[in-house]
């Protein structure tokens, strides 16, 4: 299935892609590609695969930090709003009871915390993933639609300094990739 193509025939290349049948093969291929010095690459699987992101060198997942900040912001915002309503905006003397009756604000504070933290987790995850994204070169590969069904892919991107069309496709074939294709950008 090798495509011996001349560089100047192609307009632009996003990278080289190889297909695998099982998640274990893909993780192994990713680990070998990483130890061969490739850094700009991505792996695609129809389900979360343990250790796959780590195999291509992904370390810092900042979603949790964002959600923590969102939660703190939500809780402070909710509590602050109630304080402001009852003490500043609309102070209401009910039988001499204190205006700042903070224990009564806890349920709403909690709900605001959950609301903002929950929304942050979805939108942060999407934003960090760069979604929504209407176009991505990997979809140019016809077989790639199986990445959301039953096949596992690795794509070494052309922006990697070690990327070389001939050598990289050869390397992917060595890894045991079934279909090695170039991804048009």
């Amino acid at each position: 299935m090798s495509h011996e193509v001349e560089l100047d025939e192609l307009p632009a290349i996003h990278g080289a892609m190889a297909e695998f049948d099982t998640p274990e093969e893909l993780v192994e291929a990713c680990e070998r590609a990483y130890s061969a010095g490739f850094r700009r690459m991505d792996a695609y699987a129809p389900m979360p695969v343990t250790g796959l992101a780590e195999a291509i060198g992904y370390k810092k997942n900042k979603v949790a930090l964002c959600v923590l900040i969102g939660g703190i912001f939500g809780a402070c915002g909710g509590f602050g709003l109630l304080e402001w309503i009852t003490v500043v905006a609309y102070p209401h003397n009910v039988g001499g009871r204190p205006l700042n009756s903070w224990p009564a604000y806890i349920p709403i504070t909690f709900e605001c915390m959950v609301l903002i933290a929950g929304l942050t987790s979805l939108f942060c995850m999407l934003a960090m993933n760069g979604l929504p994204q209407p176009y991505h070169p990997v979809f140019n590969v016809e077989e790639f639609e199986r990445a959301s069904i039953d096949k596992f892919f690795i794509c070494i991107e052309s922006s990697d300094p070690k990327f070389n069309i001939a050598a990289t496709t050869e390397f992917l074939r060595d890894l045991g990739g079934k279909e090695v294709t170039l991804v048009p950008a």
Partner: peptide
Amino acid sequence: ALGWRNSAIHWHRYQKA
């Protein structure tokens, strides 16, 4: 689907979220 492409890094963040 918002352009979801089953990337390993996306899955990692997705699972955390």
